[in-house]
Each structure stands twice: as C-alpha cells, then as structure tokens.
C-alpha cells in the first residue's frame, strides 16, 4: 500500500485555504467591514493562545474534556455496536426500535440536560451520560446499515466454505460492515463532543466548555475563540485516533 506523505498537495491546499481565509478575515476586521466587537482579529486570537494556556489552566481543562469524551466514546462503542448487531440479527426488534433510534439520533438531547442533572447530579457523570446518549444512536444505526448492506455473495462465499456463525461474523460480516460502523463512530463522536462541550458550557462545569463560558462572560473575545480552537484540537485528536483504529482493523482483515 502506498503511503500518503504528510506534506501532500491536499494537505498544503487545506492549510493554504485556512491561511487564506484567516488573512481575508483579518483584512475585513481591520477595515471594520466586520465589527471587531463581534469577531476578534485572528492575530489577536493567535496572540492570546499562550496567555489562555498559562492563565486559564488549559492543559487540565483539555484533559477533562478529552477524558469525558473518551469515556462517553467508549460507552458508545460498547453499547452502540452490540445494539446495532442485535437489531440486525432480530428483524422484529429492528422493526420495533429502529425508528426510535432514528428519532433519538435527530433529537436535540442536550435540551434535556436538567433531567440528567436531576438524575446524576452536577458532575462529570452527567456530562458523560449526555455525550453517550447523543452519540449512541448514529453508531447503532450505521452498524445495522453496515451489516444489512453486506453483499449477499460474500455471505454465500462464507457458506460455501462452511463457516460457523461465529466465523461468518468475524471473517465476513464485521469486516464488510466496518466502513459503515466507522462512519457511525465519526458521527457519534461529533454529536458526543458537541454535547459534552455544550453541557460543560451550560452547567459551567469541567473542561473547555466551562472555559469558553468563563471567557465569554468576561467578554474576552480572543480568549473565547482561542478556547474554541482547543475544542477543535480535541476533535482532531479523536478523529486521528479513529482513523488510525480503522486503518489498523482494515489491515488485520
């Protein structure tokens, strides 16, 4: 397999596009076409990074948000994939519950945060449970889709080699469904992270979400945007891990 170099034309294009947009933004704000009271100068945001890291305890907050996202993602993985498999295997269960899962995936569950607060208290557990609840449905749905879209002929190949049900699952169904399952995991992770940071913001507890809340209330706009960049870093970190995981599993067949 050919390895894609890190500094590929695609990478340069993406970095160049972001840099170009930042330059345009800088120019628009400096000429006051965009109000500096709404969006701070990108140069001010860049300058505030170190200050926010040192003064606001970003490493600790980063770790809290990463930890909560990791715990919620693990729960999503442990529950979402088996639920998807169960609904794939049992048609009647699927008929009964798939529409509910689809509704759950589309619902703004973050609005139910007061209920979760009552149930689990103002703690990281609440944040993890809300992150899990928001991310589990797309994983289960995509798992069902992955298994049901496995081409019939591949299952027939397995049957022709007289695979046991466990071998059929391990050797054919799971690898065939893996790309779809990872699409679900990516979607689930997006929902999970949005909800975790959102709830941290709303209940003013924990990691980067709480930091964004604090900085926004102090009207520290460059700091607020810098904190948002740290959330993007969490997202990049999890997507990179997911990408590595998918490639590793694909290599193992």
């Amino acid at each position: 397999m050919k390895r894609v170099p890190i500094i590929s034309p695609a990478f340069l294009l993406s970095i160049g596009t972001i840099a170009g947009l930042l330059v345009i933004m800088q120019a628009l704000i400096m000429t006051e076409i965009v109000s500096p009271y709404v969006v701070p100068l990108p140069s001010d945001i860049a300058a505030s990074f170190w200050r926010v890291i040192v003064e606001e305890g970003v490493p600790g907050r980063f770790a809290v948000t990463v930890g909560e996202t990791f715990a919620a993602s693990l729960l999503i993985l442990i529950v979402g994939i088996p639920v998807g498999l169960l609904l794939y295997r049992f048609g009647k269960l699927r008929l009964a519950f798939e529409p509910w899962l689809a509704a759950m995936a589309a619902a703004p569950l973050v609005l139910a945060y007061p209920l979760f607060l009552v149930l689990f208290g103002r703690s990281s557990l609440t944040i993890i449970i809300i992150g899990f609840t928001a991310g589990v449905a797309p994983v289960a749905l995509k798992t069902i889709e992955g298994f049901t879209s496995t081409r019939r002929v591949l299952i027939d190949v397995g049957r022709s080699f007289r695979l046991t049900p466990a071998q059929e699952f391990r050797q054919i169904l799971l690898p065939a469904a893996l790309p779809q399952i990872f699409v679900g995991l990516r979607l689930g992770l997006i929902f999970c992270l949005i909800n975790i940071v959102g709830v941290e913001f709303l209940i003013n507890l924990g990691g980067l979400g709480q930091l964004i809340n604090d900085l926004a209330e102090r009207y520290d706009l460059p700091g607020t945007y810098a904190a948002i960049c740290f959330v993007v870093c969490v997202s990049i970190l999890f997507f990179a891990v997911l990408d590595r995981g998918e490639k590793w599993l694909q290599r193992r067949g």
């Binding site: 081409r151 027939d156 190949v157 080699f161 065939a176 067949g253």
Partner: peptide, 30 residues
C-alpha cells in the same frame, strides 16, 4: 455446502478488505 464442492460465483466475490494472497489463502486460514 459440501467440502468436496468448490464454488465460483457469477458476481465479484473477493473480500475487498483482504489483499490477493490473503483472499486466496482464506480457506487454508479457516
């Protein structure tokens, strides 16, 4: 399916996640 009967299907039936040698080695792996 009988072990003495080997089947080649009309549809493309290689495992897309396995390379050629691992596809061919599949029955031996089992």
């Amino acid at each position: 399916p009988h072990p003495a009967v080997g089947i080649v299907f009309q549809e493309e039936s290689t495992f897309p996640w396995r390379n050629v040698i691992d596809n061919v080695a599949f029955p031996l792996e089992l």
